[in-house]
Computed example of a mutant assay.
Amino acid sequence: MINNAVTKGLDLNVPVKKSGIEWINTIPISWKKDKVTRLFNIIGSGTTPSSGDSIYYENATTPWINSGDLYSESMYLFKTDRAVSKRAINDYSVLKIYPSNTIVIAMYGASIGNLAITKIPACCNQACCCLSAIDQRLEVEYAYYLLKTCKSFWIEKSKGGGQPNISQDIIKQTWLPLPPKTEQIRISQYLIKYESYFHRTVETIQREINLIQEYRTRLISDVVTGKVDVRDIEIPEYEADSDETIDDEIDDNLVLDEEDGEMEVE
């Protein structure tokens, strides 16, 4: 859903053209394209101050981000569990403070490809790539969703012998579609609304799963301790749903509004 919105727009009836972008076939005819290096004026990373030298963490006031702080469900990063001091920033030339509204991307590790928009000035470690000073043509929430769709492309480009690591160079050389600014805002507002809906749905289903698991545990306990007599109970036959059936049900719930061609969710 995110991929379709940020690469095709909300109106699926508009004419399209060849994108000239490696990971996208076509884009709406009114859209342009540009490279990451021209859409972000500051692109960098950071480092990890010596953990054995405690002075770097004394009176620490500047938040410090590592890749573990980046979760795929969270658009914004408001705080971190770690911080560094002014002395650490002065002593480590690669330890820079990036401003609020910086997009931070995990380049390797368990959270590879995850990203967030910072809402605090912060430093980062060497596993993160920071994109800040966003060009006026680009809206930050739209940029977040757009870069989120690049995750599989970046990982594929990074494959070699061993664990994939997304390099800064791969990120810098990525071309991105660029709709008009007003359309970017519409797309990001649309996605924020429906991501919230999907997250609430997932939370509801997870609560139901937890309750069923609790019931299952209690039932097993009651049976093995003899509280429930199961000698005359017949076990019904059933057939589990396949992944294809589940995918079809999800697709059926994503429909187009016939009047304006915009995607909606039933």
Rank of each mutant, 00 (worst) to 15 (best):
L138M: 11
G109N: 10
P164M: 00
N165E: 08
T102M: 06
Y142D: 02
L131I: 04
I134C: 12
N165Q: 12
N101T: 03
D169L: 10
R82V: 00
C128E: 03
I97Y: 08
T149S: 15
N165V: 09
A143S: 10
S152N: 15
K96M: 05
C130H: 04
G109M: 07
G109A: 08
C130N: 11
P99T: 08
G162K: 08
K86P: 00
G109R: 02
P99W: 08
N165H: 10
E156K: 15
F153G: 03
I97C: 07
W154V: 05
M107P: 04
C123R: 05
A133H: 14
K172E: 12
A122I: 01
S167P: 06
Y92M: 09
S152H: 09
S93M: 12
C123S: 13
C123K: 03
L95Q: 06
K172G: 04
P121S: 14
A83F: 13
S85C: 01
N125D: 13
G160V: 12
F153L: 01
A143M: 04
N125K: 11
K86T: 09
V104H: 00
P99H: 06
G161T: 11
G161I: 09
L147M: 14
C129D: 01
S100P: 07
S158D: 10
C128N: 11
A110K: 12
N165W: 03
C128A: 09
I105P: 09
W154P: 00
K151G: 07
R87L: 15
S111V: 01
L146Q: 13
V140I: 15
A88V: 06
A110P: 05
C129F: 00
A122G: 00
A133Q: 15
G161K: 04
L131W: 00
Y98W: 12
S132C: 13
S158K: 11
F153A: 05
P121T: 02
L138G: 05
C124T: 10
Y144N: 03
Q173P: 01
K151A: 08
A106L: 05
C129V: 09
L146A: 07
K172A: 08
S93G: 13
I155Y: 04
C123A: 13
I97W: 14
Q173K: 15
T102F: 10
F153M: 02
G113K: 05
K96N: 11
I120A: 07
S132W: 01
K86S: 13
M107R: 09
I120P: 01
K172Y: 01
E141Q: 12
Y142W: 10
E156C: 09
D169Q: 15
S132V: 03
N165F: 06
G161Q: 06
K148W: 03
V94T: 15
K86D: 15
N90C: 04
C128V: 11
Q163I: 14
S93A: 14
